[in-house]
Every structure is written in C-alpha cells, then in structure tokens.
C-alpha cells in the first residue's frame, strides 16, 4: 500500500497539488480575477457549450450505433464493431489532421469547417465516439428479449416497446457514456488544435487558452482555468454518476 500511495502521489497528486496551490497564489480574489477575465470566461463558455452539444450527439448517435451493432445483423458487422475503437486508438493529433484533410482548406468536398465551432464539434464527436457506444452495447446485450416479447404480446408496437421497456434499461449506460464523453471533450486538446483555429472568443477552447497563458508566462491564469476545468470535469462525472445510480436503483426496485 505504501509503495502504491507513494507512486500515485509523485506521479499524480503532487503535480495537481502544485497546480491547485499556484492557482491560489494571489489569493481567492486573484483566482476569481483570473477566471473571470473576458477571454477566460469566453473560452469556458465555448468549451462547455460545444462539449454539451457533443455529448448530446453521442447519446443519440451512439445509442443508434450500439443498437445496430447488437440487434442488427449484416455482413461486415464485426469489422464495423472493431472500427468503433479507432478514435481511442488513434492519436488525437492524427484525428485532427485527418479531419482537417476532409474539412480544412484543401477540402475535396468543398466543406470548410476549420476555425469554426462546427469544426470543434466534428473533431470532438470523432474522438468521443466510443464512449456511449461501448457503454450501451453490453447493457443492450443483457436486456432480456423476453421482456420485449412480453410487451409485444401485450399489444405494444416496436416504438412503444423501445420507449417504455428498452430505453429505461439503457438510460444509466447512456448517461454515464455521455458523462465520460463530456468530460473528455472538456479537456480535449490534440484533436482540436489544428482544426479549431484557436480564435479567442470564437473557437478557442479552454485547453488552448491554458496553453496560451503558459506561453505568455501567466502561470497563475493557466493554473486557475485548469482548476476550473478540472472542477467542471469532476462535477459532471459526479452528478452523472449519481443520476445514473439513482435510475439504476429505481430499475432494481421495480424488478
């Protein structure tokens, strides 16, 4: 235990402690000052908005993809299933350059998304694709087909059955998948660095802002926004975990 604690402290806790302490170097007022500068507020607003949109897209599309991968059957399904993990395996900078090739200045299809919020959304959707799919897939496999058949036998159509019977079972997984996707999008850097454009007040996300503050030697500003970013990320994971946990408990009580 001692060894494990020491290792985790040196690698993880001490750097984060240094971060937290630095963010408070000029007191609470300094911290608030740092995170309420117009550029900082703007970047946080953009980051959260874009991440929320990305999480929503993931909930809908990720669930559809998971559904097709579990319930549908078509040639090449295994291959499609394997490609879902690609965004996790692919280095983020590669994701960035890949998307830039399609939607950037040299776009072969004439769609230019670089340096636009839409470009951010596409890049973040790309890197967060697996979260919801991989969260929903196993749950969907576990869902008792007989329950659905029972619903059918009671006269429920496919849509009603999905909405009333299947969806409630999937909700916790969808929520936690979306939470992970959101938390990942909040802090993402590599995939947006090339396509995002880094335009303050428009497309500059928090990680880019932090990096910029380090470059112009404002470590306190960088640390303060970093702490806010961490807090948003923890808070979202925490709230979603509570929510998912509550939904699950209801399920178990019903069962």
């Amino acid at each position: 235990m001692g060894v494990a604690t020491l290792w985790l402290s040196i690698i993880v806790l001490l750097p984060l402690a240094a971060l937290a302490v630095t963010s408070m170097e000029n007191g609470v007022a300094g911290f608030i000052d740092a995170v309420t500068q117009p550029a900082a507020l703007a970047t946080l607003r953009i980051t959260v908005t874009v991440s929320a949109i990305v999480a929503l897209i993931n909930v809908v599309m990720g669930t559809i993809v998971a559904w097709v991968l579990v319930r549908d059957d078509f040639p090449g399904k295994r291959f499609v299933n394997a490609t879902i993990d690609l965004p996790f395996a692919l280095p983020t900078i590669v994701a960035s350059i890949v998307l830039l090739a399609l939607y950037g200045p040299n776009s072969p299809i004439g769609i230019h998304l670089n340096a636009t919020p839409a470009g951010l959304v596409v890049a973040l959707t790309f890197v967060t694709l697996p979260f919801v799919v991989r969260a929903v897939q196993p749950v969907l496999m576990e869902v008792d087909r007989e329950v659905e058949q029972a619903a059918h036998s009671l006269g429920a159509g496919p849509w009603t059955t999905f909405r009333r019977v299947v969806l409630p079972a999937l909700t916790p997984a969808m929520i936690s998948g979306a939470g992970l996707a959101f938390a990942r999008a909040i802090g993402e850097y590599g995939s947006v660095v090339l396509i995002g454009g880094n335009i303050p007040h428009e497309t500059q996300v928090a990680s880019q802002y932090i990096q910029q503050q380090i470059e112009i030697d404002r470590p306190v500003n960088a640390a303060a926004v970093s702490v806010v970013l961490l807090l948003i990320s923890f808070l979202s994971l925490f709230v979603l975990r509570l929510w998912a946990g509550r939904t699950q408990r209801h399920e178990e009580q019903d069962a």
Binding site: V12, L19, A183, G187, E188, Y189, I210, I214, S226
Partner: peptide, 16 residues
C-alpha cells in the same frame, strides 16, 4: 488521470 485534460497535466508538471 482520465479526468484530467492533457494540457492541464502539462501545466501541473511545469508548476511542480
């Protein structure tokens, strides 16, 4: 580490 932005990791390491 999964919940920490890579950039924040960098900043934290610089500050330590």
């Amino acid at each position: 580490p999964f919940a920490v932005s890579p950039i924040v990791v960098g900043v934290a390491l610089i500050l330590l």
